[in-house]
């Protein structure tokens, strides 16, 4: 589905992504884990076209999409959410969802004045769809609330809802669970599983909550210092020496060695 080849992203002398290569299988829910600063979000940003890569290639179903702008990727079915939920704060939750599919008839100036009926039909269909999505995410009661005023967790749901307004092919979720309580996290997890099964969305999920990763993700990819360290099931990843080292540092291991040496 998505293939990343030897991707680099440097900020001055700092190599945030340093030669990462990975492949996302269609129909999978891939977990992306790694310590803070491993370059996970930067990798997302480069794939989603927010940042241009320093070097390397990203392909989607064989087509080169390196450096395409976000709105072009959107129309190819590549969507993402943000680590800190973004929303159009002055619009209601329903309006937020209705913003989603770009290139609507109403966006043409001509139609604004002369294509009123087409726009009205389109709006009606969008509205019905938005209500359906809100229902699915169990936040129907928030439809007419300003999106800037709902809770952080609900904003996360809204972000997920945004991806449901169109037929996405692949969705990148950046820390969907951050700052979300357990109950809501389960709702989000169920929604992801259901979307994956029923609509065939491919997901890539950055997450620090291992229970959540274990519940929905297979395979899991671990990154550290801008590189891909290991790939496999969560159990395999957890047993991987390099991964433990990346998370816990070498200090602990040295201490063990010292202990073995009887010092």
């Amino acid at each position: 589905m998505i293939r990343v080849e030897n991707l680099h992203k440097h900020f001055g002398g700092f190599h945030a992504v340093d030669g990462a290569s990975l492949e996302i299988q269609p129909g999978s829910i891939t977990g992306l884990i790694g310590p803070n600063g491993a370059g996970k979000t930067t990798l997302f940003n480069v794939i989603a076209g927010v940042l241009p890569p320093t070097s390397g290639r990203v392909t989607m179903a064989g087509e080169d999409i390196t450096g395409l702008p976000p709105h072009a990727l959107f129309h190819k079915g590549l969507l993402r959410t943000f680590q800190i939920a973004h929303e159009f704060s002055s619009m209601t939750c329903r309006e937020n969802l209705m913003m989603v599919p770009g290139n609507q008839a109403g966006e043409q100036l001509w139609n604004t004045w002369f294509g009123r009926k087409r726009i009205a039909d389109e709006e009606r269909a969008l509205r019905a769809k938005a209500d359906e999505v809100l229902e699915f995410l169990t936040i129907s009661h928030l439809a007419d609330h300003k999106a800037g005023q709902v809770s952080g967790g609900q904003k996360k749901l809204l972000e997920l809802g945004r991806t449901m307004m169109v037929d996405a092919k692949i969705v990148f979720l950046d820390e969907v669970g951050a700052g979300v309580n357990r109950t809501l996290l389960n709702t989000i997890g169920d929604a992801i599983l259901q979307l994956n099964k029923e609509r065939g969305y491919t997901f890539v999920v950055i997450e620090h909550d291992m229970d959540f990763i274990g519940k929905i993700c297979n395979p899991v990819i671990c990154m550290a210092e801008g590189k891909v360290l290991a790939e496999g099931t969560l159990a395999q990843i957890k047993a991987n020496e390099q991964v433990i080292e990346a998370y816990l540092g070498t200090g602990l291991k040295n201490k063990d060695k010292l202990a073995e040496a009887g010092a």
Partner: peptide
Amino acid sequence: AYSDNEDLALLSGIN
């Protein structure tokens, strides 16, 4: 929307 949050507007497919 674009004025409110440019990143999000782009990722919502707004040209």
